[in-house]
């Protein structure tokens, strides 16, 4: 409760420069293509007012709502989570929602669709080839007893989780696929995203699908076609390192193929693992969760 003796709260007035009024106008050079009318893509310029926090996606939405409603652009979360707004901005693969226009330090922002994927319209590409390759590497836990243990988890230590944790941040935006020079020439190449996920599930100790996955990735257009350019890792907006995962996958196939294929997956949660049984863990769980402290 506030009393008359309490000091009033002090608010620091933020620097509002570029928040209330636009800082400058920037030309958005956007790739346009209508399959019903155009034989090939062309660029069209739009002038967009840019505020301090305007992102490339904000700029494209401004164009769509104020200048040209025919512009096709795919987006959803606007916060770098869904990966829908992946595109090539000023020659580099980026998420439009995570790219501040002013950070580009350019009076012209060139926006074009992702490379290595069929174009649907304007800057929207067909992600199906990319997602089909992802599906091909079986990006899920494979084991015989999975149906019998739907109601309980499989045990895994934090160290085992660390083996692949970084790779779980993949949002399947397709930026790495667009940046990959091998994918540009070899359309059957599985690509960095799928190969990184193949590694992620193979090293998961709960998984026993190494044999099936190696059949897919150890092929003429599989893991060996990666030349370690590293463009995929440089393009990833989530800090995933597919280039590293691919090299690790090569190592796994060359040195530990037999061991990985015969590996027994981690037991389900009612089996003793590392000296701790689930019964013991369950015994120590409080019967009722403690209530939050009452407000004073």
């Amino acid at each position: 409760m506030a009393t008359s003796e309490q000091k009033p709260l002090e608010f620091k007035i933020p620097n509002l420069e570029g928040v209330e009024k636009p800082i400058k106008n920037v030309v958005f050079r956007v790739s346009r293509f209508d399959p019903d009318k155009d034989s090939k893509p062309y660029y069209k310029d739009y002038e967009v007012p840019v505020y301090r926090f305007t992102t490339v996606l904000d700029g494209l939405i401004y164009i769509k709502y104020n200048l040209d409603p025919t512009l096709a652009v795919r987006y959803s979360c606007r916060m770098g989570v869904c990966g829908s707004c992946a595109m090539v901005v000023n020659g580099r693969e980026r998420l439009a929602c995570k790219t501040n226009v002013l950070s580009l330090n350019s009076s012209i922002v060139t926006v074009r669709p992702l490379n290595n994927l069929p174009l649907i319209r304007d800057i929207v590409t067909d992600l199906r080839p990319f997602l089909e390759k992802h599906r091909k590497v079986m990006p899920y836990i494979i084991r015989d007893d999975i149906e019998a243990h739907q109601d309980r988890e499989f045990l895994q230590s934090p160290a085992e989780l660390d083996e692949y944790m970084m790779l779980t941040d993949c949002i399947k935006c397709g930026l790495c696929y667009s940046a990959c020079p091998t994918t540009a020439t070899d359309e059957l190449f599985l690509g960095p995203q799928a190969l990184a996920q193949a590694y992620r599930y193979t090293v998961d100790t709960r998984d026993a699908g190494a044999k099936q996955r190696f059949e897919v990735v150890d092929s003429p257009h599989g893991v060996w076609r990666c030349h370690f350019a590293g463009a995929c890792s440089a393009a990833c907006p989530k800090g995933v390192d597919p280039a590293f995962a691919i090299q690790q996958l090569k190592k796994l196939i060359l040195y530990r193929r037999g061991a990985m294929e015969k590996r027994k997956p981690a037991p389900e949660s009612d089996k003793v693992r590392e000296g701790i049984s689930v019964e013991e863990v369950v015994k120590n769980i409080p019967k009722e969760w403690p209530s939050p402290p009452a407000p004073k």
Binding site: T185, D186, E187, L188, F189, P220, H221
Partner: peptide
């Protein structure tokens, strides 16, 4: 062989 497989695709070509 590797270069040519990356240059073009198809089972006949392979």
């Amino acid at each position: 062989r590797i270069m040519l497989l990356e240059l073009n695709q198809g089972s006949g070509w392979s």
